[in-house]
Nucleic acid binder design. Structure first.
Lengths: 153, 153
DNA sequence: GTGCGTGCAAATTCTTTGCAATGCA
DNA sequence: TGCATTGCAAAGAATTTGCACGCAC
């Protein structure tokens, strides 16, 4: 996530950039993994010690609704949040270390067409999340899914 | 979901088929939408009046872990459960009426390859959910997303 | 009969809300 | 300065756990 871009986005929408929100943005920007509310609180307090958990919840709702952050869904829960690149994108979660990366090249046309044929639905949106082993864990020989598994298949 | 197949699956694994579990299975089998724990409780009490909410939670955990049911993730929450067809499959949620259908033809090879190239991850699993308008809602001219939106994009 | 499974109630989380005080624009 | 935003504490939801009893196998 690009913190600079994100703050611009807030300003552009006339939303106040408070110290609290800046701290949450910084925490999300620094994290390589998805973070839960408590983790964000802890991480962001380095920059803004008086930050409260309530504010973290409110800031996350805001950032997610603006598309600046994205929720990810793991078997550990669905409250985890990562910073998002601009534009359409999806997450890949590392099954070894929990690291989250993003990718944007999701050509779902053929899959959506197949699903439409099979179900009779007119498809208009997709929610996609991949899981695997990140480059670093591959290098370290980590192969097993230890920490996280994605929901569904 | 095929309730008969599901009960066989339980027996095959040596798991007791109690009246409570049977009632939950029936409720899931009858529903065309995803159901939350309370809804399942209510629906299943027709068949098993003394059923408790705790048991519903426990039964759902069991069924999901066996792949007999699947959780779906909407903006309304992530506790919703549908019965699953056997084998690998994904859900399509109707944005008009909430109905859930399943499809199995998900050829993610090219998408996963693209993601692997972009992120350096070795992809091993995917979690996919589609949203759109079901055939019936299309026929009724329902076009807008009223009730549900999927998380993410 | 033997345990696994259950229901209830209580305990834990997790998340949201009310409201006075604060601080960004 | 004005009003959005915050922090705290308290309310509310959602989910889990402990334990004695009941029932499927």
């Amino acid at each position: 996530m690009d913190v600079g871009k994100a703050t611009q986005e807030l300003r552009a929408r006339g939303i106040r950039l408070t110290r609290q929100r800046a701290a949450v943005l910084t925490a999300l920007g620094r994290a390589e993994r998805g973070l839960g509310p408590e983790e964000i609180l802890y991480a962001a307090r380095g920059e803004c010690p008086e930050l409260g958990l309530t504010t973290v919840y409110r800031a996350l709702d805001l950032l997610v609704s603006l598309g600046i952050a994205r929720r990810i869904h793991t078997s550990e829960g669905c409250a985890t949040v990562v910073g998002a690149k601009a534009g359409h994108g999806h997450s890949v979660v590392c099954l070894g270390c929990g690291r989250v990366a993003e990718f944007s090249s999701c050509d779902m046309v053929s899959v959506e067409k197949a699903a439409a044929t099979e179900t009779g639905f007119k498809i208009s949106a997709h929610s996609l999340e991949l899981a695997g082993i990140c480059a670093e864990c591959q290098a370290n020989g980590v192969t097993a899914a230890v920490v996280l598994t994605v929901h569904g298949d």
